[in-house]
Design a protein around this nucleic acid. Structure first.
Lengths: 317, 317
DNA sequence: CCAGATTAGTTGACTCAGTCAACTAATTTG
DNA sequence: CAAATTAGTTGACTGAGTCAACTAATCTGG
């Protein structure tokens, strides 16, 4: 493995971020050295990754490869045709969906991959063999710790995705607004009816170029929503921001608001306005952080509540 | 960070090579995710690496950047000119060597780099903040272990390089052959004289297209040698293979022989032959492993030794 | 001391890994 | 059942990086 620059015996900074970033640079170099033999193979790194996946998974389609390896479909298509022409893979059309083909490595394909796999193993083996048993155990234990800590952390707080709305979401938005605002703030079913009217109008009059709904999804479940709707040609409205309690603290709300703002700018609105209640502290904080300004307040009695203060916030571009 | 596929709780294979390779794939994905923001910056990954080095080192030349980052000089040249035109770097010609220029990041350059550095730190910080203090400590301890084990291992067995001969090497070859063969096998100074004659003829009659000497160097010191010389148009001779005792066991001898063979093939010889003594067990094993075949043996008395058996080995292409 | 070799960096021409968009055929959806 | 969407293909292109020839400066050996 390539030697890292400078003496390792120098004092380790206490800053964990610095330590992790330095480790990342260090390990990038290790991986670079290990992969160097691939640069001298007949395959590019990406080709090796594709062959590797084909060797280790069954019933694989091109679409899945694109998804999992982050590849351009056109690029992969050409790569697979090249592999086919060399006889390294076979294709079998899916019976369920004749657009899809299942890909598999042939014996010949395994044969061309085998030396690369062997070489990769040999290089790691060489590294390990330079370590004493004690040092080797220390290394293996450490990489196991790194992997387990990070993997478990990711499982605990798996990332969420924002996606456009799809059938079923509107009902969910209405249902969850109704339930949560009742639970958390005591707003009665008239609030839920208001939400239902908002989403009905959104769907009935949707202008996709200038209006959108985002749903936050985590582990296959909806956990948040926000809408941007057109108030006028130059003014947009941000509505129905909601994050499930179980998904709070992950930055979902902030991200939903940011997406709204981004889209509104793209759509060349001059302003976003929104109507909220003074007691929705978390939401108000998000708006404030995003640059919205409070421009109006008004006391009102609604949804079986007698003490509400409505607020209007605006963000000018 | 991206979640790795499958459950981590599955039994860990006992094979250390497999574990390290899996960790390498895992960590490549982590690093890939961390670097993704760079893909959306105005800089390529390589540009960021160059800017980073300029930010953290002084008295840096283009040649040093090429050397340390493995960059093509022409490519770097254009990159640096681009940086210069944006005002991100300055150049100062060296007083000692007017071919060289010293490079430095300007305040403007630091300004464009700063958000990327900040973003990198923020991402690592986000990861760390998702960990409990206990888990964070575990991670930091583990990466420290990985880095220290591998770094110390590399310091102990820093890689060697093979390079062509340069002035001074011939004397070294003669001197070390003389000393080592006397120490290890009792060959007297007539052996050293033989070696001197071989290297003298090599230099005097060198045909660089078809003859070469390789010197193995480790930590700035010569630790091995081998020569390939022309016996006839179609036959090459491998001569003066030597590895210092302190550098044995690292595969240097194998590598020297392999380089000879590679070069001989390139030069379109049909055969390599060599003359060795039966008692040079390590060398004989290397030749055998490389495909050489023993074709002749002859007892002889030389160099104050009365019991030598000379052997002729050949490798046909 | 000087011609030839080597080095530091530049310029011209090129390769190819990967991107983007338009396409065809098949499937899904309202 | 028409329109929308999806899986994969094809055409055209970009730009990160390579290779070789170049200029100017330095080093080396005779």
């Amino acid at each position: 493995m390539a030697t890292s620059g400078g003496s390792f015996a120098s004092p380790i900074p206490n800053d964990p971020v610095h330590s992790v970033r330095r480790f990342n640079r260090f390990y990038t170099r290790q991986i670079g050295v290990l992969q160097e033999h691939l640069l001298h193979s007949q395959f590019s790194l990406t080709e090796v990754r594709v062959l590797y996946e084909l060797a280790h998974r069954k019933q694989l389609t091109a679409g899945e490869l694109c998804q999992d390896l982050g590849l351009d479909p056109g690029y992969l298509s050409r790569m697979l045709q090249n592999f086919l022409s060399h006889g390294w893979i076979t294709t079998a059309p899916s019976r369920q969906d004749r657009r899809k083909v299942f890909l598999a490595l042939t014996a010949k394909g395994r044969k061309v991959l085998a030396p690369l796999e062997q070489r990769s193993s040999d290089e790691v083996s060489a590294i390990l063999s330079r370590l004493s048993p004690v040092q080797q155990g220390k290394l293996l234990s450490a990489i196991h710790d790194v992997e387990s800590v990070l993997t478990l952390s990711q499982q605990v707080s798996a990332p969420y995705v924002l996606r456009p709305h799809r059938p079923g979401d509107m009902g969910w938005v209405v249902q969850r607004h109704g339930a949560l605002y009742w639970q958390e703030y005591g707003y009665d079913e008239r609030f839920e009816a208001l939400v239902a009217g908002i989403v009905a109008e959104f769907i009935e009059k949707l202008d996709p170029a200038r209006e959108r709904c985002w749903i936050a999804e985590k582990d296959g479940e909806n956990v948040g929503s926000v809408f941007l709707v057109k108030k006028s040609q130059s003014v947009a409205k941000l509505r129905l921001l909601l994050v499930e309690p179980s998904a709070r603290g992950l930055g979902i709300g902030k991200r939903l608001v940011a997406e709204c703002i981004r889209f509104a700018r793209e759509a060349r609105y001059k302003k976003i306005m929104l109507w909220t209640q003074s007691e929705l502290a978390a939401a108000r904080h998000l708006y404030q952080s995003a640059g919205f300004e409070l421009v109006a307040k008004e006391k009102h009695r609604s949804w079986r509540r007698k003490d509400l203060i409505a607020e209007i916030w605006e963000l000018k571009f």
